[in-house]
């Protein structure tokens, strides 16, 4: 078994683990961690594709590697936005439950 296939299998396992966490964990911060697991699993798949594409004197195909760098940046930004929302929700409502509380209507209705 070579290193890139191994990394690919790790990527697949991470995607599976993260997907489970994303569905099964009620806490949004845990969901965020799960999302990051899925994300890094996907990046590993890119990395495997890049490593397998070694050619023309390069030890890797630079295109997917560059995409991973873009992807990591975006994933971090997403995590930071989610953390800001979670913390704000915790301060504003005293909890971080994602379940809509009661009828979403509230008696005031929508105030523009």
């Amino acid at each position: 078994m070579n290193a890139s296939l191994l990394a690919g299998l790790v990527g697949a396992a991470l995607v599976g683990l993260g997907l489970y966490g994303l569905i099964a964990h009620p806490h949004p911060l845990r969901k965020l961690l799960a999302f990051n697991l899925v994300g890094s699993g996907v990046f590993l798949v890119f990395g495997v594709v890049a490593r397998r594409g070694a050619a023309a004197g390069y030890a890797f195909d630079p295109v997917p590697q560059a995409m991973v760098i873009t992807g990591i940046v975006v994933a971090f930004a997403a995590s930071a936005l989610a953390v800001a929302l979670i913390l704000r929700l915790a301060v504003a409502s005293g909890g971080v439950s994602l379940d809509p509380q009661g009828p979403a209507g509230r008696d005031a209705g929508e105030m523009e």
Partner: peptide
Amino acid sequence: LRAALRYLL
């Protein structure tokens, strides 16, 4: 906030 967080996830 809750709606936005769900949307984001």
